[in-house]
Design a protein around this nucleic acid. Structure first.
Lengths: 90, 90
DNA sequence: GTCCCTTACGTCAGTCGTAAAAATG
DNA sequence: CATTTTTACGACTGACGTAAGGGAC
């Protein structure tokens, strides 16, 4: 599980579309599809229901979204704190 | 940045040794060294001071340790919550 | 036909282990 | 010399893009 997968997951959850997320992330749809499948595999749960009108979070997906948002927020705080620090190398 | 790196980082921070962490994680010392170097590179900060008597967290390393522990805790909560869910596939 | 997601496949970066090197006590 | 970390190198896994496939409107 890596943070790129988590960012892609949150992006898809927001725009409710793999293809739109792909454009926003400057990736291809297959890359998005692969990332989501990989995340679903490691978490052992289906995160999205795929329909012709769009993709939507399952119950498990909503749970995951809640925690993953928190993790990404903490990651940003970490980066912010390190940027203020001495050992930071631009 | 992936979660294996974060777990290795926390392990090294606890045992203050790459070699001991390697044994505990069932990896080799070079693998630990590489993971830490990679994490230091992505965070843009030196996390450990390497001495002959052991490795110790730098100031930036202590900051990172604080946030990374929180991220790993949330990851565990996520796994716990998903395990209670319907869509969970063993 | 059009749009969207998935599968298949070749390519390239990242990670591991083994082996050798460098540094410290 | 013993211990620990780092570097070098070959092998493997994982992620990407291109191209083709399948389903819904």
């Amino acid at each position: 599980m890596n943070f790129n997968q988590l960012k892609v997951f949150c992006l898809v959850a927001e725009v409710k579309s793999f293809s739109k997320a792909a454009k926003l992330a400057h990736l291809t749809q297959p890359a998005i599809s692969s990332q989501i499948q990989s995340l679903e595999s490691t978490l052992g749960a289906t995160l999205f229901t795929r329909t012709s009108t769009g993709v939507y979070l399952t119950d498990a997906g909503q749970v995951a979204h809640h925690y993953i948002k928190k993790m990404l927020l903490i990651q940003e705080e970490l980066n912010d704190q390190l940027r203020l620090h001495d050992q930071y190398l631009p």
